[in-house]
Amino acid sequence: MLHGNVLTPDGWRLGELRWEEGRLTALPETPVTPEDNDLPRILPGFLDLHVHGGGGADVMEGGEALATVARTHARFGTTRLLATTMTAPDAEIRRVLGAIGDYLRRPSPDGAGVLGVHLEGPYINPGKLGAQPSHARPGVLEEVESLGRLAPIRLLTLAPELAGHLPLIRALSERGIRVQLGHTLGSYEEGVAALEHGACGFTHLFNAMSGLHHRKPGMVGAALAHADYAELIPDLLHVHPGAIRAALRSIPRLYAVTDSTAAAGMPDGDYRLGEQAVTKCLGGVRLADGTLAGSTLTMDQALRNLVHLGLSLAEASDRLSRFPADFLGRPDLGRLVPGAAADLVVMDPGLNLQAVHVAGRRIEGDPHVTDA
């Protein structure tokens, strides 16, 4: 049981929130304006659909690294996540997906729940790698299906302009795999065609994709003109606040991700991102040549950043919880309603994190507390 200002799909309610066996059973009914009191703000837990690492560990390491990543992000309010891979040789990807499959059968009891895999590459454009290693290649359905037998692939990023990818998008969509467009040099027209074939989102919008020009709208233009969903990294480093505001006005269910690396939750220093060596400094993570290489963002800071940009707390919460849950087709996550998972984030009026519950279980240890 928790008492405070509870954010429900029908607005803020004041009173007690209850759960049993990891599921919500009762919500308060009294409407409230949370700014009128100093009680905690109780929000749905955050869903991060793009996580490469955290706490010094990288998803591509497999094994115990996955538990470290899950525990680290839970400290910052993430209650569910997708373990996100890097472009790599086939044998390496198979090794990692096998490790993720093993982890899902014996998950850490004190971390965020891992919902499956976000396969970011290798089916991307070698001319738009960003921080991805140079192992890009076109995809084929049989290979994706083989990988999916090792661990459940919930989301897959690809470049739609590569040969054979439009029919691949349709086939993947028919099999329930969400397809996002990213690491792409594709045109506006190729982006629209991909959406017509079943693609349903864009990976780290604006980053590693053809940009918007008024006579050549590019992949960004396709997203702004046609997308219902897209992910974006709101660390205020990857995307200018003005571009974030433009995307918020254009894409109804724009949602936040961290694209976090092993450096998330860690001090400045040297870390790994797949086979790449990266350095954390000045709030960012970069390759030796200065290329941005994922982020150090955590979801509690993403929430504060969106509020700083002018969103209400309820609007910001939707973009960290309800919208990514809807994108995955999980109505039992990302909202506080009877029967939903008791995934909860408790914050003080300054939006400092006070407690995190995953399926009703409080994450042990001192919660991460950061100045608003």
Rank of each mutant, 00 (worst) to 15 (best):
G4Y: 09
N5I: 03
T8F: 03
W12E: 10
R13G: 03
G15I: 05
E21D: 15
L27E: 08
E29F: 00
P31H: 01
V32N: 08
V32R: 12
V32I: 13
D38K: 10
I42Y: 05
G45Y: 10
H50L: 12
G56L: 11
A57M: 04
D58F: 03
D58T: 02
E61M: 11
E61K: 09
E64V: 10
L66C: 04
L66Q: 07
V69D: 12
F76Q: 08
T78I: 03
R80C: 14
T85N: 04
M86I: 11
A88V: 00
D102C: 02
R106P: 00
S108F: 01
P109V: 08
G111V: 01
A112M: 08
G113A: 14
L115K: 08
G116A: 10
V117K: 05
G121I: 02
P122I: 07
N125K: 05
N125C: 11
G130M: 09
H135S: 12
P138G: 12
V140M: 06
G148A: 09
L150H: 04
R154I: 02
P160Q: 04
H165E: 12
P167N: 10
I169N: 06
R170L: 00
E174F: 00
R175Q: 12
R175E: 08
G176K: 01
R178E: 02
Q180E: 13
L181G: 10
L185D: 14
E190V: 04
E190S: 09
G191H: 09
A193F: 00
A194D: 04
L195S: 08
G198E: 05
A208V: 09
S210I: 00
L212E: 09
V220L: 14
G221L: 02
A225D: 15
H226S: 13
H226W: 14
H226L: 04
Y229Q: 08
L232R: 07
L232N: 12
L236F: 13
L236R: 05
A243I: 01
A243N: 09
R245M: 12
A247W: 07
S250K: 02
I251L: 07
L254C: 03
A256W: 03
V257R: 07
T261M: 11
G265H: 05
R272L: 12
Q276G: 09
C281Y: 13
C281Q: 15
G284P: 00
V285L: 09
T291A: 13
L292Y: 02
S295W: 05
S295Q: 08
T296M: 14
Q301D: 06
Q301M: 11
L303R: 11
L311E: 14
L313M: 07
A314Q: 11
D318Q: 15
R322Q: 13
A325L: 04
F327P: 04
G329Y: 02
R330F: 12
P331D: 12
D332W: 03
A341E: 13
D343T: 03
D343N: 12
L344M: 02
L344H: 01
V345Y: 06
V346I: 14
P349W: 01
A355V: 01
V356G: 11
A359R: 15
G360I: 11
D366G: 11
